[in-house]
Computed example of a mutant assay.
Amino acid sequence: MKTIFVLNGPNLNMLGKREPSIYGTQTLDDIAADCRKAGEELGLAIDFRQSNHEGDLVSWVQEAGGAAAGIVLNAGAYTHTSIAIHDAIRSAAPVPVVEVHLSNIHAREPFRHASMVAPHALGMICGFGPLGYRLALQALAARL
């Protein structure tokens, strides 16, 4: 069974409490459970993680380069600022990465429009709430 790392960045541990009008009412635990269910349906093992620390995300992307068949990455605010995560994704190639955002980052503040992840991602899914994670897993399963 192929393993997909589902990696989540800063403040995503606050889902369900943080700005529900933007991010919805589901918790990260709810999303993790849905990802595991989708993984079972797709024949994928899911390794689901979250950290508020950029270095953890960098280390996990590097780890995925040798241990995973793909990565679903919601880097949170680091999407827009982290050259380190950008470089880690490059070093993990050819492991495919699908970038996910709960909100439509292109319909928000201008500083959210740029992504340091996108140049090296297979694709980006944004604006569909927690469904985006399931869509990302489906996209990876189809690609693999």
Rank of each mutant, 00 (worst) to 15 (best):
Q26D: 09
L135F: 15
C126P: 00
A121P: 01
Y23W: 03
L135E: 05
V97I: 14
A92P: 00
N11P: 03
N74F: 13
G132W: 06
E40D: 07
N13T: 07
I89V: 10
P10V: 14
A45N: 13
H86C: 13
A139P: 00
N11E: 08
Q62R: 15
G123C: 12
A67E: 12
R112W: 05
L28S: 07
K17H: 06
G39E: 12
A68V: 14
I89S: 01
Y133R: 11
F128A: 12
M14G: 01
S91V: 09
H53M: 02
H113R: 15
D29C: 03
E109H: 04
P110R: 15
I46H: 04
F5N: 05
T27E: 09
L140I: 12
N11T: 03
L44V: 07
G43F: 06
G16A: 09
P10Q: 12
S59M: 06
C35H: 06
A141G: 00
L137R: 07
F48W: 14
G76R: 10
A68Q: 10
N11D: 06
L28C: 05
G9H: 06
L28D: 01
A33L: 13
G16R: 14
V58G: 01
L7Q: 03
I71Y: 05
L137W: 08
N52L: 05
G43V: 06
G39F: 12
D34L: 13
R18L: 11
W60A: 12
L15W: 05
Q62M: 11
S82P: 01
P119F: 11
E54D: 02
M124D: 00
P20G: 10
A45H: 09
E99H: 06
V72S: 10
N11I: 13
D34Q: 15
E109R: 09
H53N: 06
A84F: 04
N8F: 11
L122W: 10
G123H: 08
A93V: 07
G16V: 14
T79R: 12
K2N: 07
T79S: 10
I85L: 15
P20N: 10
L144D: 04
R18N: 03
V117E: 05
L15E: 04
G39L: 14
S91E: 13
R143G: 00
L140M: 09
A33V: 09
L102V: 07
A107D: 06
R90T: 06
L137I: 09
